[in-house]
């Protein structure tokens, strides 16, 4: 456990292993949002979908005694909330920014309501993956091969999204819809349907990311436990320049900062805990600034229709 370390005993192997765990929830949320934005939709409700996933996952896992059923419930919870967003923005033409905010405000309240009576409850444990002898390789074993299944699932999702966007026909259609929805519509692609599917996928990933927090990382339910992770995931998509592998890199860099910050806290660093706890948010802001300014900006490839409403005229 990181919590019982002092500064002299900071162990790079433990740090690297903890980094992957710290990164996984935002990685999941970010890869989902990346697909949504690739389809040309900006869903600012990631935080709300994450916390909804955190609570539905927790409640189901506790009720059934099975963490995997909980994770499925989290996927359903996140996707369900996302479908409200899809209905409002794609069919009722509501403003995407405002609807995303509404999703977050609603999700925070809804999760607090559902989560009543769960504080202090321990969820069923998620067993670690058993890689047999691989886990005993020095250094690499503890870093890479002793995690819970979701860490690997998140990596598989990243790879799958990369393949999907790059090589599959459906992925190309999704990108076309995101780059220029009028042209895609003229070509006969069903813009709204593609977007609804992308939004639901984004919600499912965010929900799973939330469940990772409540079932594995913490593991406990507390009100508002996502603490801005959804917003950081949104920033991560910008950092990643809408590329899946860069989202992975960004998430792990970010996980490193969080882990280091927690380690310093535990080691009794002289800076008060509250200031150290600002680090993740400040780092995210600095990264956003670097990515959006100057030369870096030219390499950004924001989808052309991002955030613009689509209404087939005539």
């Amino acid at each position: 456990m990181i919590a019982s370390m002092d500064l002299s005993s900071i162990n790079p192997v433990v740090l690297a292993a903890a980094l992957m765990v710290a990164a996984t929830p935002i990685l999941l949320a970010a890869i989902g949002e990346l697909v949504v934005e690739k389809a040309g939709v900006l869903n600012l409700g990631v935080e709300g979908m994450m916390i909804t996933g955190a609570v539905t996952g927790f409640a189901f896992a506790v009720a059934t005694g099975n963490p995997y059923l909980g994770m499925l419930a989290a996927v359903a919870g996140g996707a369900g909330l996302a479908l409200i967003f899809a209905l409002l923005t794609q069919y009722l033409m509501a403003n995407q920014v405002a609807t995303g905010l509404a999703l977050t405000l609603f999700g925070l309240g809804f999760s607090a309501l559902l989560g009543q009576g769960y504080s202090g409850v321990s969820p069923p444990r998620t067993p670690r993956m058993d890689f047999g002898p691989l886990a005993d390789i020095p250094v690499l074993g503890p870093i890479l091969f002793r995690h819970d299944p979701l860490v690997y699932v998140s990596l598989i999702i990243v790879a799958a999204v990369w393949w999907f966007l790059r090589y599959s026909r459906a992925g190309r259609i999704l990108r076309a819809v995101g780059e220029n929805h009028d042209a895609a519509h003229a070509l006969g692609y069903r813009v709204r349907l593609v977007r609804v599917a992308a939004i639901a996928f984004g919600g499912a990933c965010a929900g799973l990311g939330g469940a990772y927090l409540s079932l594995i990382r913490v593991p406990q339910w507390t009100e508002g436990m996502t603490a801005g992770a959804g917003w950081i995931a949104l920033a991560l998509v910008v950092f990643a320049a809408w590329r899946p592998w860069r989202a992975l890199l960004g998430a792990y860099l970010f996980g490193g900062i969080v882990t280091l910050q927690l380690t310093l806290q535990a080691a009794g660093w002289r800076i008060p805990v509250e200031y150290l706890a600002m680090a993740p948010y400040l780092v995210t802001i600095v990264v956003l600034v670097i990515m959006s300014s100057g030369r870096a900006r030219r390499t950004l490839s924001a989808p052309g229709s991002l955030g613009r409403p689509f209404h087939a005229a005539g």
Binding site: A94, T99, A102, L105, G109
Partner: peptide, 26 residues
Amino acid sequence: LPSAAIQVFQGMLLFFLLALDMLSNY
């Protein structure tokens, strides 16, 4: 009544409002 219920209530209000706004533009 749990205090979170009011938060949900406020969130729902915004949802309904955004949905109904369609009627003013379309």
